[in-house]
Each structure stands twice: as C-alpha cells, then as structure tokens.
Design a binder for these strands. Structure first.
Lengths: 333, 333
DNA sequence: TTGAAAGCGCTAACAG
DNA sequence: CTGTTAGCGCTTTCAA
C-alpha cells in the first residue's frame, strides 16, 4: 500500500504539503494540489486511518452497545444510528451484552484503548455511577429513563412512565377497569421497567382503581411466558378475572393471545390485550396488536447526533418532542 | 491516559520488557512480571489498540456488510458473527448498503485504510471481479451462491438452488401441480435469485410440468407486493389459477395470504402459499407459514471463523453440511 | 506557501 | 533475560 511518503515523493513535494492537502489546509498552490491529486490517483493512495487517528488523537469510530441485535427494537435503533453516523463520517462498532454486566464493562474499556471515541449505550446493565467513571475516557450517551444526574454522561430518555400511564388510561377510557399488568422485571423500584410500573400505578390511582396483586405478573419476556400468563388468568374465577392486560411486551402479548385462543377466551371481547414496542410482527398477528410504539428512528438519530457533538465538542440539544412514545390502536384492545 | 512508557518508568524497566509482557513473550522473570502488573494496575493502563495495530500491522477489526440490519436475516447473521468474533478477540464494524453499489465500494475501501483487516459480505451488489480486486488489501469472504471461481476471494455458499428445488418438490408431492412463483429479481440469469429460479425450473421440468409465464411474478419484496400478487391471482379464471405459490420471501407470502383472506380465497385449501426465510413472525402469523429456513446461526459462525482464518493465515474448511436450508412445514402449504 | 523534524504509542530486530 | 534503537504512517510545530 502506498503511503503519504510515496505520494510526496511522486509529486516531488514534502509529506507536510501532502498532509496539508489531505486536511484541506489553506496555503497550497493550485499547481501543487494538482500534482498531489495525480500522484494519489496513480498510486491508488488511501490514507491509513489508523495512523491518522493515532497521531491526531481524534477517532472516527463510535461504539454502539445493545442487548441483542436480533431484538428488532435494537436493530431499528442501530439502523438509524448507522445512517446518521455514516452521513457524518463516523463508523460503528457494534457490541452485544446479552444482558451481561461484564460484557458492558469490556465495551466501556474500549474507550480507554481508543478503539472508539464515543459510546452509545442503547441499554444499560451496570449502575450509572460505574458507567460514569468511564466518561473521562470518551463520550458516553445512555438511553435510559432515570433520575440520575450527571454532566459527564448524557442521557437520552424516552418517557416510559408517561407512555405506560397513557396506555393504561387508554384502556380505562375504553371501559376496562380490571387491568392486569405484566413486567419484564420484578415490579420493584430498582428493577428493569420501574418507570413503567410507576405509570401503571399512577393511572390506576388517578382513576381510583385498587391494585390487585394477583393480576401482576413478573419476569415475563417470551411468547411462552405469555402463554403461561394466559393459563393463570384462565384459572381465575370468572368474576376475579381482569378484563384487560397490559402485557409489557409484544412477545408476551402474542403469547397470551395465542393461548387465549386455544382456551376459547376471546380477544378483546373477553379480555383485551395490549403490547409494548410495536414489533414488526405485531401488525401481522392473527389479531393485530394494540401496542405502544417507540420512536426508534428519531431516538437513533438523536443518539448519533448527540454522541458526535460530544466527541467534537459542539452543542446538541435533544429534542424531547420527537422522542414521544405513542399508542398504536389495532384490534387486540 | 497512561502509556507503555509510564508503565515502564513506574516499573523501573524498559518499554521493551513491558511490550514483551503485553505480548506474552517468554523470557521475562516472574519478579518483573509482578512489577509490571502492579504498575499497570496502579496507572489503570490499557494499551492503545491504535498504536498496536499501526506498528504490528495486524488489526483486530472485522467489517460486516449487510443490506439492512432491520432485515431479520441479517440481524441473526450479524448476531452469530458477533458472538464468534468476540470469542476470538475480534471486533465488528457494521455497514449497511441498502442495496447501493457505491456504499459497498466505500466499505471495501476501508480495507485499504486498514480500518478493517477483513470483510464479510453478507450480500453483494457489485460483480465479484470488482470485489476481488480488493482482496489484495485484506481478507474478503462473500456469502452468495455463484459459479465464480477465485482463490483470493472465499465464498461461503448456501444452496439456494437446491432449497428451492426441494421446496417445489415438497409442493408437488403434496399434490399441487399448478405452482406459481414470485421472485425478488426479474427472473433472468443475472438477477438476484437466479439460483432459486434454476431450482424452480428444474423441479418443474423433472415432473414434466410446463412453465406458465403468467404465474411468474417479478420484483416482489414487500407485504404490499404480496397483496398485489394475490389480487392478480384472484383475477385469473378459476381454471387458469395455480393451486400453490412459492412466494420467494415470507413478507410476500404474508401479503398474499392477507389479501386472499379479504378475497375469501382459502389458504391452503384453495391456494397453498410457501414463503422463504423463516422470519421470526412467520410462525406467529394468522396462518402459520410453511417456509424455507436458512441456517443463519451456522452461516454466521462459519463466516466469522473463515474470515479470521484468512486474516491469521490459517486453514479453515467450511462445513457445507451445516449450511443446509430446510423446509419448515406449518399450515400455509 | 513550503519543508524539516519531532513525535503519537507501540513493536521488533539487534545487541548485550 | 533485558535494553537500545529504529521505525509504522501520519500531523504539527517551527522556521524559512
């Protein structure tokens, strides 16, 4: 591979001048520019981004950390980030944690290695104190709802609490009053999904609906989990049964509906089912799912813009108004 | 950030020794090892991967090129590649082409930049001659079925021709004889999907079924395309109608089925529908899809192992037996 | 407007 | 077993 030296030699100039050309410095005569261009062309020269980064101490690689790429939520997020990043001349290094804290740490360590100049964490496993301790090595943006305040870390938040509140109210307005609830966490304040729990609780409270502990289902993620919930629900006494369930995820919702079908429980006539995420398959289901859609596209775009601004030391204000979740009404509720 | 120099200084040793330690060279006394370890610990030292790569001329980054990450086929592929790569100490740089030839070239150029030491092309837009011309700059593995022979380029092939042949025979054995066919390409030999076309044609021929041009649908990709196909099929005279259609993609299949439902055409009773890909939603559909499953997991693993072996100059033999597509029978056919 | 020279952080002969 | 030294390919003073 040709180096800057070869180009300089062939053009009869110094490497300095060639370097200047590469970086669009002023003060190069057009004549030399021409020569350099020709030499580069002839040698099929491409600057080594490695050397550039090492010397100039500014990288062009952005890390993106997700739980699993096969989860469409993350796939769409990464898709949006990739488009925006490419457009601004940045590359993406993708890592998956699969929910593992240590993997997350390993990725954060790449900031020290200078492999990446910034990291977008689309999900977070460790506590934010730990994450923040890496902020001195590079830019970090985290997508999560939290009360944690920090000026080294930028947070890019969607309002899960509000979305859940809205969703439950949507059900209430539709006349449902017995609203069961499924969560991926354990329904405590520290668990995953705690902000959604708050939204659920707040909506019930405002409508003077008493919480029924037996209608709370914890640690559910998969279609199978959903089917199990449906079984449990079906075992309840007719009058002890909720008339709706907020499933917390589209997978779980699909599982519930599928099992209900086998049990001859009609959706939404007997029990309405509401999902969360608006997965691609949700509109394709046998009973198209009423669900909550997340703004993956704008979330990804803004995350990319944010991290780039942090890397480059410019300002970027997140536009919260673009980051709203919205209820997507179809047939299951 | 601490450098190797700082570590050497603090440990009272030369950078060479520290470098040796970093690279697990023999000939270092345990005593010094200890010192180095301590110094690194204290300084929170992490080697700059940039400098290492520049100097040693061996990188640790693998490029992965896909059409769109939001296509589950690619998401699952990348997922598998990521796992395998991580396990071997490599990182993934992801690029999307969105079907654009120039984007593919841009990605190939990264081989020259030394940004990546190898590239896995999960799909290919340009002709293989062009791709091959980049092979001198780094390892390239391409996943595509082709007759193109090359020793600079490694191909990792699934047998689309055979899978389609098998699928059509599956339909034939089920008693269907009028088998329509939809393709993403234009049904010519050069287009996307030409190997599938061959499989279709071969199966028909072997069963002495004459090709009916009016049952060939070209350039279809989306659910909407599928719905349009269904409309056209419904307009055919009852006796001119096929009794099955091989849709070429699950999306198209879903579209066809959905429209058929509106038109009161029963699936599979009136017309059987077969998809391709086994997308995650395919089993979830109203009428669970009979389709062809691709071995994304092993394909991804083998692609990763292959490119790593190429980068490291070792041998790796692709295990074709693991790369078989298989028919997944559900209800639509 | 141009060039010489000194590194960025690391590795790899070569010499002890 | 350990250190000296010369770069990898590029950018950036400094001086001309």
């Amino acid at each position: 591979m040709a180096t800057i030296k070869d180009v300089a030699h062939k053009a009869g100039l110094s490497v300095t001048t060639v370097s200047r050309y590469l970086n669009n410095h002023p003060y190069i005569s057009d004549e030399k520019k021409e020569k350099i261009r020709d030499a580069m062309e002839e040698l099929d020269y491409v600057p080594s981004s490695l050397a550039t980064q090492l010397r100039s101490n500014r990288g062009t690689m952005i890390g993106v950390l997700v739980s699993r790429l096969t989860n469409p939520y993350f796939a769409y997020l990464v898709d949006a980030i990739e488009k925006k990043a490419k457009q601004q001349g940045y590359r993406l290094l993708i890592m998956q944690t699969y929910g593992d804290k240590q993997e997350e740490i390993n990725t954060l360590e790449m900031l020290k290695e200078k492999t990446i100049s910034g990291l977008i964490m689309c999900a977070v496993e460790n506590d934010l104190e730990t994450v923040e301790s890496y902020a001195k090595y590079g830019a970090i943006a985290v997508s999560t709802q939290t009360d944690y305040k920090s000026d080294r870390l930028r947070l890019i938040t969607t309002n899960q609490e509000q979305a859940t509140y809205d969703a439950i109210n949507f059900l209430i307005r539709k006349g449902y009053t017995g609203i069961a609830y499924s969560t991926g966490g354990d329904f405590t304040d520290q668990s995953h999904g705690s902000y959604r729990n708050k939204g659920y609780l707040r909506a019930l409270e405002e409508s003077d609906i008493k919480l029924n502990e037996r209608w709370i289902f914890k640690n559910n993620h998969t279609i199978e989990d959903g089917m199990e919930i449906a079984v449990q629900l079906s075992r309840l006494n007719e009058k002890d049964r909720p008339d709706a369930i907020f499933a917390g995820s589209d997978e779980v919702a699909i599982g519930i509906i599928r099992k209900f079908e086998q049990l001859n429980i009609r959706v939404p006539a007997d029990i309405a089912v509401m999902g969360f995420d608006n997965q691609p398959f949700s509109s394709l289901a046998k009973i198209p799912l009423t669900t909550v859609g997340q703004p993956m596209e704008t979330l990804g775009q803004q995350a990319a813009s944010l991290i780039i601004s942090m890397i480059e030391g410019t300002e970027f204000a997140i536009d919260e108004s673009q980051l709203k979740l919205k209820i997507i009404e179809r047939e299951s509720a």
